[in-house]
Computed example of a mutant assay.
Amino acid sequence: MKLSRFNLASLTLGLAFLYLPIVILVIYSFNASRLVTVWGGWSLNWYRELLRDQAMLDAAWMSFRVAATSASAAAVLGTLAAVALSRGGHFKGRTLFSGMLYAPLVMPEVITGLSLLLLFVAINAERGFWTVTIAHTTLTMCFVTVVVQSRLHALDRSIEEAAMDLGCAPVEAFLRATLPLIWPSIAAGWMLAFALSLDDLVIASFTTGPGSATLPIRIYSEVRLGVKPEINAICTLIIAVVTVVIIIASAASKLSKTQAESAAPM
């Protein structure tokens, strides 16, 4: 299909609107000047300054810990939920279960964060690493479920039935026959959950406590007082990490789709 000039111009303007600010941020992270709006030449000074900013590094370490833990929990729970929805048939309460599972996809984050805050206050839970992790698991589990469920629907269930005919119990048949085929989609869901958790600000601001600020919260609190060059540097590093995660997730999702198509009946 040949693009018209109008469509090409619209596409160019749209991509520029989305990505030009990010490109400018990355370029100015190598700016030698302390003034973020004045170009002073190329330099790595602010990356070296970032390595000496212990508060920013602690916030980054907190974010990566929360993201890794919540993504792992979301991968397990989301996979189990996907199996229940795709293999459980029309069990009683299925509509309610799926509705509650997918609610975070459409619910504003401020409502989710506030409701979780009220829950933690009601049970007198000390807010910190674990409350943020639970909140992010609640947010990201539905995304893992969507990814894994789509792969399960594409698989031929006769593979599990053949394994059970050969003497495997239902759980063993799933672990031996189905899990290796959906493993790339689980990995893709984990990476998606990791990226979403690493990026979250709203829910984390409701559920965090003293001494457990995540990197987005730290950046937001400093930006309100003025943009420091170190912020450009840390944002560039986060962009690089998220880009790598998205590329790996896309590759894993494509591999899962290819395996699902090869396993489907002709």
Rank of each mutant, 00 (worst) to 15 (best):
A163V: 01
G211T: 13
V144N: 00
A264N: 07
T95N: 11
T214I: 08
G113S: 00
R151G: 08
P229K: 02
A71K: 03
K257G: 12
Q149Y: 03
A169N: 13
W46Q: 01
T131N: 08
Y19D: 11
G113C: 00
V106F: 05
A125R: 14
I159M: 08
C142E: 01
Y19S: 14
L255V: 10
S4K: 10
G128F: 12
R224F: 05
W130N: 07
A195Y: 04
A67L: 09
L225P: 05
Y19C: 12
L175E: 01
L18C: 14
I248D: 01
L198F: 06
P170L: 03
G209D: 06
A162M: 01
L255A: 15
A125H: 12
F194W: 14
L80Q: 02
T95E: 11
A154C: 09
I182Y: 04
R65M: 12
T208D: 05
I182Q: 02
I159S: 02
A9C: 11
T208P: 03
A103T: 15
G113Q: 01
T214D: 06
L114C: 10
V242S: 05
L80D: 04
V146Y: 01
G209K: 10
K254M: 12
I27H: 06
V23N: 11
A84M: 10
V38T: 15
A169V: 09
A193F: 04
W61R: 15
S10D: 05
L8E: 14
F206P: 01
R94L: 07
G99K: 10
I22H: 05
Q149E: 14
S29C: 02
E261K: 13
V23T: 13
F194E: 02
F129Y: 15
T243C: 09
A249Y: 03
E49H: 09
P229G: 00
Q54N: 11
F194H: 02
